[in-house]
């Protein structure tokens, strides 16, 4: 790992702007589509390090929350404050891995090249990035012929290529086999250990246990619970979280 770690990231002084993005402070965050309230006055803070697992039943607004935090959407009302930074400049310092990876109709290597080039990064890092996600041997293959797990690893490599300070993952392992899930988790954990802030949406209880530093549990557009991982899994405070883990919570 140590031999790939160096070229994986751009040199620190280039990559990290003076003022950090963390901590995150969210106040009264509300999102409505017409009459429907999807997120209803969320208030929470995220500390500067670790992996936050965002959980909750289908339709609880987890994916939309990620998009709001990433700046892909604007809230109906409320505030998202990333370390006091200009909201316009935040997106570029973060990366989002979607549930279904959107890969360019090009080779595996060209998908990475594209991001390195458009974001003005060192093009020489491509091989190290592919090696890091275990796709070096597929560099010349068409990206759209990769298996689900390989495609998601490529999407992850592409996200890492932008040197994000925050990495959002939206159910990245939802339809993958156990080996692929493990591979993704290993890469994400490595990123976390190198100081990248992780926000990870999942339904997989085992995955949450393996990865979480803290858990943000959404239900009905509200935060039912936001606690440290150990507390959450051992003695959840909210009835909805308890029911969810028992498989009894329905929307």
């Amino acid at each position: 790992m140590s031999d790939t770690a160096l070229p994986l990231a751009t040199k620190l002084k280039d990559a990290v702007p003076a003022a950090p993005l963390m901590p995150l402070s969210v106040r009264d965050l509300t999102l409505r589509f017409g009459e429907t309230t999807v997120l209803d006055g969320l208030n929470f803070d995220l500390g500067s390090a670790g992996c936050t697992m965002i959980m909750g039943p289908n339709g609880s607004g987890k994916s939309l929350l990620l998009k709001l935090l990433h700046g892909l959407m604007a809230p109906t009302s409320g505030h998202i404050d990333w370390g006091g930074q200009d909201p316009q400049a935040v997106t570029k310092r973060q990366a989002l891995v979607f549930q279904k990876p959107v890969l360019l109709r090009r080779s595996v290597a060209a998908n990475i090249d594209f991001v390195l080039k458009t974001r003005g990064k060192d093009r020489g890092r491509r091989d190290a990035l592919l090696d890091h996600v275990g796709l070096a041997h597929k560099a010349d293959q068409p990206a759209r012929l990769l298996s689900g797990g390989e495609a998601q690893r490529l999407a992850l490599a592409r996200a890492l290529a932008t040197d994000p300070e925050v990495l959002f993952l939206d159910e990245p392992t939802a339809s993958l086999d156990p080996a692929s899930v493990l591979a993704i988790e290993t890469i994400v954990r490595d990123a976390r250990n190198r100081g990248m802030r992780i926000c990870f949406v999942t339904h997989d209880m085992g995955q949450a246990r393996r990865m979480a530093d803290d858990v943000l549990f959404l239900h009905g557009g509200r935060i039912a619970e936001h606690t440290a991982a150990r507390d959450f899994f051992c003695e959840p405070q909210s009835a909805s979280a308890q029911n969810y883990m028992d498989g009894r919570l329905v929307v």
Partner: peptide, 24 residues
């Protein structure tokens, strides 16, 4: 329609978006 969200996440400029779309 397929690429838009990913491209916005990557903060591509309009020109970069057009070039990538035409190429793909």
């Amino acid at each position: 329609a397929e690429y838009a969200e990913q491209f916005r996440s990557l903060c591509l400029t309009r020109l970069q978006t057009v070039q990538a779309l035409i190429w793909d």
